[in-house]
Amino acid sequence: MALKIFTTKRHKPMRWINTKPTRATQIALMLAPFVLLIVAYGFTSAARLADNPADKLLPALQTLTDAVNRMAFQPDPRTGEYLLWSDTGASLVRLFSALGISTLIALFFGMVIGMLPYVRALLAPFVATISMVPPLALLPILFIVLGLGETSKITLIVIGVAPAMIRDLALKVLELPREQTIKAETLGGSSWQIALRVVLPQVLPRLITCLRLQLGPAWLFLIAAEAISSDSGLGYRIFLVRRYLSMDIIFPYVLWITLLAAITNFALDRLRIAVFPWSNLEAR
């Protein structure tokens, strides 16, 4: 009788946690929810329009593309601008200047709080408290103090985003192994040299990741500020056409904002890998 310890036949199916999709299946699965959403929308929209051809809530796909065409590729009869692009430009200028300012603030304060015990004692509790203030509650104050222009909108985003980034970065600095700092000291490094050559290069990849995580909140504050007071921008347009129940414009705008945020997110991650190749080696 043959020993039946090693058999090639599987008696039990593989565990679910060990079954993996092939590349093709993976792509199909990735696309499925998107396709499903569009199809579901198409059916629901058609059903509502069959009931009431004047329904504005779920416009037909054709109406949506018409709206996109009107907003993106035909000049506005009043101002002569291509509204989608001028709105996008206005919003992105606000968003990116605010994110740029927040990044610089976070880098500076995150590093000094993380590295210097005196500054940590002075500022860490303060920043932790500030980050608990709901930024939208400050919006009226900002509008009163800074006026209705760009400054108040950019400030709102900075207030909303920077404290979280500072805390994250300070934590990252503190997480650097103590051995590394000691080693740098035995190599004769001063505080400044260690900051420049040991700490800074290691927190920069984290700063980029941190920025990616803050994209969502940044867009939220941007659209909130534009909704309340503005004369251009993606958020402004959405809240303007809301009055006419123009879902044909709102839907494409929301999609467009999502796409912009997703592209920024992806590009930042690629940037991190390109500039700091070592930061991806450790993850493996």
Binding site: P177, E179, K183, V198, P201, S279
Partner: peptide
């Protein structure tokens, strides 16, 4: 700690963001 006393730990003795040459050069 100062430059007259060198140290090697069990882990984290080298800087992950520098190449071999960069680490020695530091």
């Amino acid at each position: 700690p100062g430059p007259d006393r060198g140290v090697v730990f069990q882990r984290y003795s080298v800087f992950p963001h520098l190449t071999v040459l960069g680490n020695v050069l530091l």
